[in-house]
Design a protein around this nucleic acid. Structure first.
Length: 710
DNA sequence: CACCGGTTTATTTTT
DNA sequence: TAAACCGGTG
């Protein structure tokens, strides 16, 4: 049993062995945080005899949860299902599935993902006669979610937005409940409500979870913090791990201050610092440290590594993005000749769209790759449609799914009809599906006829489910709904059909896992899984280069890492350049990116990049400057034009200077009505300016009178 | 109601 | 650039 500790350093051992009372581990990048968590869990189970299901371990992503479970299972024989190792959201779903009836929902509730929520808001805006141009559904969604966790905050908004939100929120919430749906925020909030209002349930879970661990604590938001507090019992056996330098989810409400708050709320807390880095070379660590040290207000850590200095970081600058993708491809080729495998290499970028040109080049050069997280499998239209069919079959009250597929494939049921039926549904307080053959419904006979046929079909599928295995059941769905026929006329039909087959496989796997369970229960569970795992994590393609966002890379490591498109405006993003807070978060993102690399780090960019379809000139990311010249080896344009660090050395074209002296990219401006903004592009007489949230991005005449440089 | 084609518009990160 | 949106026609 001492094996559990033999490859740990003393700080790590302390973190593993201190099981009683509140503990906070400040874990720098690459300090073996996951190892500590896993060992701690193993220590509890095997040395101290704690039941696996009495430990609650919260991770940030499904990927992390799966990995942790794998490690424990591999280490010792513990049944997977017994463990409470999950994300906040899936933990909540698991609790609610058991108890949600106490809050007036049905236990077959389904989970609405973000896209669904936005769609729903769009429809609601229409019924409220609110112009979706003035109030973007996407940003309304964000406001709405914020408001749900903090209803008081409504007073902080100003009319007309305030008025819109006041109308929208109750309507949205009622629709959800009527359809027996919950959104991501509800999962957390309803669980809190449940625990607060039901003493018995609360004390059950509090005594069940003898030990609670929370990973990536710097990324918890206030609601999640509240939830953790509710689950921890008076023994206060809570262990949190975090690193404020890696907090990159403020946009989702993550609150770094929660780390400090934790120290206040649990005064007996023991603080452990994990400073030894097992991952990167000292060059990489020092460079990353140079970058992050520009952030104010942080606990200064002293990361060190025993891996030596290693190679310098390469900074390649290309003229166009083509140069950049070429360079990355060639370098990958070279690395593979030096013994690197494709799976040792990652290409990281700020925004998903950046992956495109890299994919093109890799394809052309036969470099095997995998893009993580872009259009996830479960977000594809055909999959969403199939899911909607299954949801409606399980739960006919689900107006949202009803609307999605009632005319997919085309059944001659148009928007007019649906709007009427929807309004009627609101009046009668019954689902659209149920009201189809209501005697007073305000629809034409033709429409009623078509709707009745649809209803018949859904009901017959509902009857079929208990008798059939999932394989036959899915076949029946695509057959009866006409979906299969529709695909034959679709250019993408074959691919879409393939995807549906994949979904079928997934259902069958679950069928096998829960042999004796009721079909509807299993299906409910699978649909929940799909909603929570919109970020597919089972793409375990072997030996391929990984392309992903910097956010997606959190918690991972690679022997060689490329951080690409490092230009002012791309990374950090234009929008983030206005406020220090946003800029500091971008900087942490850079820190996370750099510290993913074990041996080799490449930072690349291009002077000119295609943006919104037209070429735009960019300067180097300020983060490159922040690394400082000592750790960088220059390649590409850098070499020819000498260093980008001495501004004066760079020759300028005087012609452009005079033409464009009025406004330039990156200038901060003030507009009479739109307020402050940043110029993100200048094309001839026009310029594109990013204003604050309310106004978004606007294209204006460059020398407009309302514009003023600040 | 479905379909076509022209026009506008938006570009961050994720459970 | 590409996807979403709009408005007119069959």
């Amino acid at each position: 049993m001492e094996k559990l500790f033999e490859d740990l350093n003393s700080a790590q051992i302390e973190a593993v062995k201190t099981t009683e009372g509140p503990v906070m581990a400040i874990a720098g990048a690459g300090s073996g945080k996951t190892r500590v968590l896993t060992r701690r869990m193993a220590h509890l189970i095997f040395n101290l005899g704690v039941d696996p299901d009495r430990i609650l371990a919260i991770t940030f992503t499904n990927k992390a949860a799966t990995e942790m479970k794998d490690r424990i299972v591999a280490l010792h024989q513990v049944p997977r299902r017994a463990m409470w190792v999950s994300t906040f959201h899936s933990m909540c779903a698991r609790i609610l599935r058991e108890h949600i009836d106490k809050l007036g929902y049905d236990k077959h509730f389904q989970i609405l993902d973000d896209d669904d929520t936005t769609q729903m808001i769009k429809v609601l805006l229409k019924t409220l006669n609110i112009d979706a141009k003035m109030f973007k559904p996407r940003s309304l969604k964000n406001y709405l979610m914020d408001l749900k966790s903090d209803p008081e905050a409504i007073e902080d908004y100003e009319d007309p937005l305030k008025g819109v939100l006041k109308q929208l929120l109750p309507l949205y919430q009622r629709q959800l409940k009527d359809s027996n749906l919950v959104d991501f925020e509800d999962l957390l909030l309803l669980t809190i409500e449940l625990l607060k209002t039901h003493r018995v349930v609360r004390s059950y879970y509090q005594s069940l979870f003898q030990y609670v661990m929370v990973d990536e604590f710097q990324d918890t938001n206030d609601v999640q913090y509240r939830l953790v507090k509710l689950l921890v019992n008076k023994n206060e056996n809570i262990f949190i791990v975090g690193d404020e330098d890696q907090s990159i989810y403020a946009f989702r409400g993550a609150n770094i201050a929660n780390i400090r708050k934790f120290e206040n709320d649990y005064p007996k807390v023991k603080r452990i610092l994990l400073e030894q880095n097992y991952r990167s070379t000292n060059t990489i660590l020092k460079a990353a440290n140079n970058v992050i040290s520009s952030n104010k207000h942080r606990i200064v850590k002293n990361l060190y590594s025993t891996h030596g200095d290693g190679d310098p970081i390469v900074f390649f600058k290309g003229y166009t993005y083509r140069d950049e993708t070429e360079y990355v491809s060639e370098t990958i080729r070279r690395l593979t000749h030096q013994g690197y495998r494709y799976e040792d290499i990652a290409v990281l970028y700020r925004a998903n769209a950046t992956s495109r040109p890299f994919e093109d080049t890799f394809l052309q050069k036969n470099i095997p790759y995998q893009v993580v997280g872009n259009l996830s499998f479960f977000k594809r239209k055909e999959i969403k449609d199939m899911v909607a069919y299954m949801r409606l079959i399980i739960n006919p009250d689900d107006n949202y799914s009803f609307r999605r597929i009632v005319n997919e494939p085309r059944r001659g049921i148009g928007n007019k009809t649906l709007d009427r039926l929807s309004a009627f549904s609101a009046e009668e307080d019954e689902s659209m599906f149920a009201l189809i053959d209501h005697k007073d419904n305000p629809l034409g006979n033709a429409a009623i006829g078509k709707l009745k046929l649809f209803k018949q079909m859904v009901l017959s599928l509902r009857e079929a489910i208990e008798q059939l295995d999932f394989n036959t059941f899915m076949d029946l769905i695509i057959e009866k709904t006409g979906y299969k026929d529709m695909l034959q006329f679709d250019d993408m039909g074959a691919v879409r059909y393939e995807n549906i087959l994949e979904l079928k496989t997934m259902l069958q796997e679950n069928e096998r896992a829960f042999k004796d369970a009721d079909k509807i229960e299993v299906l409910t569970y699978v649909l929940e899984d799909i909603a929570l795992k919109s970020q597919e994590d089972e793409t375990k393609d072997s030996n391929v280069v990984t392309l992903m966002t910097l956010h997606g890379a959190k918690g991972l490591e690679f022997r060689a890492v490329f951080v690409v498109a490092c230009e002012q405006g791309m990374f950090p993003l234009f929008r983030s350049m206005e406020s220090t807070k946003a800029l500091e978060e971008e900087r942490r993102l850079m820190y996370v990116g750099m510290t993913r690399a074990k041996e080799k780090l490449f930072i690349t960019n291009a002077k000119q990049r295609q943006l919104y379809g037209s070429p735009v000139m960019h300067t180097d990311s300020q983060f490159i400057t922040e690394i400082g010249p000592d750790y960088l080896k220059l390649e590409g344009l850098n070499k020819a034009v000498s260093q980008s660090f001495s501004q004066s050395a760079r020759p300028r074209k005087p012609v452009m200077e005079t033409v464009e002296n009025a406004l330039q990219k990156g200038d901060k401006i003030e507009h009479k009505t739109f307020g402050r903004g940043v110029v993100i592009n200048v094309v001839k007489e026009q310029c594109v300016i990013a204003f604050g949230k309310e106004y978004g991005i606007k294209t204006l005449l460059k020398d407009h009178a309302a514009l003023k440089k600040v």
